[in-house]
Design a protein around this nucleic acid. Sequence first.
DNA 1: ATTGTATTTGACACCGGTGTCACGATATGG
DNA 2: CCATATCGTGACACCGGTGTCAAATACAAT
Lengths: 339, 339
Amino acid sequence: MQKVTINDVAEHAGVSKKTVSRVLNNEPNVSKATKEKVLEVFKELGYRPSAQARGLATNQSFLIGLVYDNPNKTYVSDVQTGALEICNENGYHLVIHPTDHEREDLLAELESLITDSRLDGVVLTPPFSDMADLLSMLQSRAIPYAKIGPTILDDETPSVISNDLEASYEMTRYLISLGHTKIGFIKGHPDHNVSNQRLAGYRRALEESQIQFNNDYVAQGYFTFTSGEECAKQLLSLPARPTAIFASNDYMAAGVIKVASQENIAVPQELSVAGFDNAPISRYLWPTLTTVKQPIKDMATDAARLLLDAINKRPLESSLVQLTDELIVRDSSAPLKST
Amino acid sequence: MQKVTINDVAEHAGVSKKTVSRVLNNEPNVSKATKEKVLEVFKELGYRPSAQARGLATNQSFLIGLVYDNPNKTYVSDVQTGALEICNENGYHLVIHPTDHEREDLLAELESLITDSRLDGVVLTPPFSDMADLLSMLQSRAIPYAKIGPTILDDETPSVISNDLEASYEMTRYLISLGHTKIGFIKGHPDHNVSNQRLAGYRRALEESQIQFNNDYVAQGYFTFTSGEECAKQLLSLPARPTAIFASNDYMAAGVIKVASQENIAVPQELSVAGFDNAPISRYLWPTLTTVKQPIKDMATDAARLLLDAINKRPLESSLVQLTDELIVRDSSAPLKST
DNA sequence: ATTGTATTTGACACCGGTGTCACGATATGG
DNA sequence: CCATATCGTGACACCGGTGTCAAATACAAT
């Protein structure tokens, strides 16, 4: 069909290709008249500049990477959607890169991803956002990057975080406000730093309400459904059974609900359950799950935006953006029955 | 760090860049000696050819698009993973493109995706695989494409299908083998052609077992959890209540299980439930869900492979690949209690 | 040794843009 | 009014590869 090049435009507009290029890039020193004329020819011919040629000349790829390792497909989908939005707006392409954060050769793998694909920058999701060796590798190669949900904030690199800790705190406060004092907690995967954040929020709420923290009420999960089941069994077999369980994500909370059902413990009458993430499953469970909704997609758009700012060396107001989580109360939590 | 170009290699190897290019592309008419020498220099210098420059010269982008519109994140993830695998193997990048199959300007949107990004080809998922106007648009622009799960197979374009109809047939046969005769069926979204396939499999199994098809036992769902709930209510309020319900996907089956639980109908003792897709939720439900597992990822890899074959004009053995679904029996189905 | 053919190789233009720089036209100012 | 700074523009090389074509070399047959 077409293959309109900059030369065609130049010819039609009666100017040199360099001038067309100037218009394309909004460079100064183009008279208003010629600029308008060129823009007109753009439309007339339906001209689309070639990112390849442009990139070849400027040593850019217009590619940014998105690195993740998260079994939660909803999370991944949201992150992709958010990042994609910004990429499309700016003529970049998104190179999605699912990988295993535990693989031996992770650094080498990411290094070859970057050099082979000549990425202009990378968006990192947890737990990559906190991997010191990875960050220093990127730095040494001068690859700009933006971090989603890092827990270490000691540098100047662009980061987007949510108030995980506060949300966890709020959820615990909420359970306490329902009258619960024996509140079980299921931790997330130790490799993910959010796990600590969420535990910390739980502890802070207890302290503030002068409820003694009891380590027996804390179980080590791994963000999986089955780990949730195991933790639930453990917690529910305690002599002084908890009247509420707060799991660090929805899959584990689902496991709790399943175990409760198996053991004929009524939710929420005898046991309140809360999760984290607002995964689809949280709406499909019976009862529906009280949980925390994180602004994943928004975090991704902000991260991508920050990254592009960095790549194009636009001054950024702040390298740290904080968005807020939202408590969603559904049917799995209820006031403690007075005995 | 580095920026090894073809000129560097040429210099080090004492040959012209054209010869290096020949080695790069495995072109004939290069003496064994020089070829080896060049390959050696490749390693020595860690040379990576620039896809940009290559593409600019050959009018390729090494980009292929993946178009989808599916709320099932697992499906999307599997498709991405499969397509990505092939892309990475062949030095292509995958441009993921979630969109809305019902939007007015769909054709224009995809057209601009293709021209703006200069895609070399596109992988289509349902329901795009069956959209005639889209296909003819691609054809007229000479954009190679591969279709996943089309139901119309009247052309020569590369396609990958699974035996949806047979799987649905098998599932129904299985329910019948458990003694069920009053088997409810929940249809999928009418825009998705698989919906018809699955219904057809159900009907064929009934016929073969000489069970009268009863339209009252068929409800119209939309692949969503809530539509599953509604259909379940409808089916379970029938005078001659079905003893088994086969839903066209797992989300709807989950809705059925929820409603059954609300109405105190024991699953599977009083009601067998079956789904389709093997979504994560199928393992987390209580009881766990009997379902059908489709080889989504494999379908995507095959589709991508076929597409790349078409792009590179490699002769393909067959333009149609068929993979097989797998029946997964879990706890939500049981033999009919003899009354 | 001579001619003919096949194989190996390189010079050079080109893909579609951008960077550098030089040149003419305008604007500024003393 | 002329010297100087600024603006607008185009010529040309270059980014890192590939296609074309002709030259150089190897091999075979006469």
